[in-house]
Write a protein that binds this DNA or RNA. Structure first.
Lengths: 337, 337
DNA sequence: AAATTTTGCGCAACCGTTTGCGCACGCACT
DNA sequence: AGTGCGTGCGCAAACGGTTGCGCAAAATTT
């Protein structure tokens, strides 16, 4: 149909007022059973479908939530999206997508566009070098709630769900210590990422538990690019103490680090052992998988974040309490280790 | 702001008509320079942002395209989405997401919701057991163009971009033949998938080229589940001729098949060799990667499909020609093979 | 039979923006 | 001075629905 049937159309055919038709379709009690039936039958016959854009406009609600994240093709995020989409769909919400490519400017632009599209709420995992959060804080003015997940900004008064890397890191380093490693390097992310801080803390705790002294020079901060990883590896391998194990920031970093180690004629799992964080659920597919991996539950994070957002959207009262969910990360041994 | 500024607001403050303000903001020539400036300044001062939902409603256009595909967390699709989102964003389109989980009913529902949300167009990769295409054909009535990608329905008169598996399969089987394999098994997908037919054809062509006779019993149709793969493997390994190489439908199937082979005490790349199709760009990460993999260019497919859709959306004339783009698949050797 | 309540429906405004049309004014041209 | 035209702006309808309010007829009460 070039002209899909409207309420007005139905009203005209039945000699009723638009309002009556509208109410009849909604089973409003003040409409007689007779006319209600007539309306509904005609509506069915004409294949009437309410024009959602009109409703969105009128109700100031779009039943759409926006997702902003760094990179769709990273396995971690695609798993998260899957969780988000699944739970959003259960409540008949749709999901609008945007990737920042870890670029703050793009992130800002996407948020802006999403705001203009009048999404009801936002789910965000911030770009790794986003330093200014004004574009998110601005959303408060528009009553657009935001729930951050995984990569969360260092702010008070936000909703978020994240995975605490501390526990997993503690377990990871402990495992390495048990296996006899004493000089354990760590390739960490930018310091302003909470997740980086948690990794450091977890590392320290593990050492402390064993009453071993903590050597800060074993933790290298990297920008997580391939070059950054290689630089970090170079630094670690030339450390005055002989590094026999490395905790990599994630599986991508691990992959790059392994490659570098191989180039240096090191034998994996003999000269040097890796532990990593499972950004990809597929670490079982890797050629030189880390001996263990810290699971971060991307699907569950997405799911939980969405649930929180949906609750915020349904709740009329703007309660001043902030939802902060922290899943514990957990070390998972590689199969057969 | 509970009440974001509107055109009416600006008009009131400047003692102008709404229409004048609207035109001024759009630099309509029939508005004097003086007032145009005044309006634009005040708009900036008030942080005026047009209400997109109103515009969508009025213009019957949402600058949104819907994506419907089986599984977000499959690497192939997330790469495709990435391509879609990138090119859509360049034209200021947003992307609405829905996954069918390979379930026809869900697929129908998603399409329905997207139609109601008045997406301007749709990008679809169909669920693997979708047999009825009525929900897509219906979109024609609503002037919602659809471009299929990768998993395309067996229909005439559709727009699509897909990767022809034939060329890649031909190359793959040829490679195996060169390496001396003579009994080559194939785990194929449902016969009604075009991609399955292409694989069969490619296989046959490779044999024909070498003047070898084609043994249809070496091609097993599977539903691509893990169980299906195992059943297929069982059948192949008990074939009266000794199968020394297998062409797996994709990397997931390959993975399951490798696992089964290992359980049967077979040595990979010695007793049996695998070739696969790269649904995951990450096959380099795999523990027992196939010796070669047919590349399907997910990002490019997504990109191209989006370009076609955007062109359809911009073109006023509903040209009766259908865009059908077929990329050639290409065999890629595993690193070091 | 009159007064009151209930039932069933219509009127009109509203959400924010765009756009066809008309109108008044000033200017230039005969 | 009369005609004509371009310039700059306002009026109002339209997009498709929802909703507060009012009003008549029917049903109930006294």
């Amino acid at each position: 149909m070039a002209n899909p049937p409207t309420i007005k159309e139905i009203a005209k055919r039945l000699n009723l007022a638009k309002s009556t038709v509208s109410r009849a379709l909604h089973n409003h009690p003040s409409i007689g059973l007779r006319t209600r039936m007539q309306v509904q039958e005609l509506a069915k016959a004409l294949h009437y479908e309410p024009n959602q854009t009109a409703i969105f406009f009128q109700q100031k609600k779009t039943f759409t939530i926006g997702i902003v994240l760094p990179e769709l093709s990273e396995a971690f995020f695609s798993a998260a999206i899957s969780g988000i989409e699944d739970t959003a769909n259960k409540s008949n919400y749709m999901v609008l997508l945007g990737q920042s490519h870890d670029d703050e400017a793009r992130e800002k632009k996407i948020v802006e566009i999403m705001k203009n599209h009048r999404v009801d709420g936002l789910l965000v995992s911030i770009a790794k070098n986003t330093a200014d959060y004004a574009h998110f804080e601005m959303l408060g003015k528009y009553d657009i709630p935001v729930v951050f997940f995984d990569r969360i900004p260092n702010l008070e008064k936000i909703h978020y769900v994240a995975c605490n890397m501390q526990s997993g890191t503690l377990q990871a380093v402990s495992l390495l210590l048990e296996k006899g490693h004493r000089v354990i390097g760590m390739i960490n992310g930018p310091e302003k990422l909470i997740a980086s801080q948690q990794r450091t803390t977890g590392y320290q705790q593990a050492m402390q538990k064993r009453r071993l002294k903590f050597d800060a020079s074993l933790i290298i901060t990297s920008d997580l690019t391939k070059e950054g990883t290689r630089a970090a590896m170079k630094q670690l391998l030339s450390h005055k103490r002989k590094v026999t194990a490395i905790v990599a920031f994630n599986d991508y970093v691990s992959q790059d680090a392994v490659q570098y180690a191989l180039e240096q004629q090191l034998e994996i799992n003999k000269d040097i052992t890796f532990v990593s964080y499972a950004n990809l659920p597929l670490s079982s597919y890797m050629a030189y998988p880390p001996i263990a991996s810290v699971e971060q539950y991307p699907y569950q994070q997405g799911q939980k974040a969405t649930e929180i957002l949906l609750e915020l959207l349904s709740g009329k009262s703007v309660s001043p309490t902030f939802h902060t969910v922290t899943l514990d990360s957990r070390l998972v041994l590689a199969p057969g280790k």
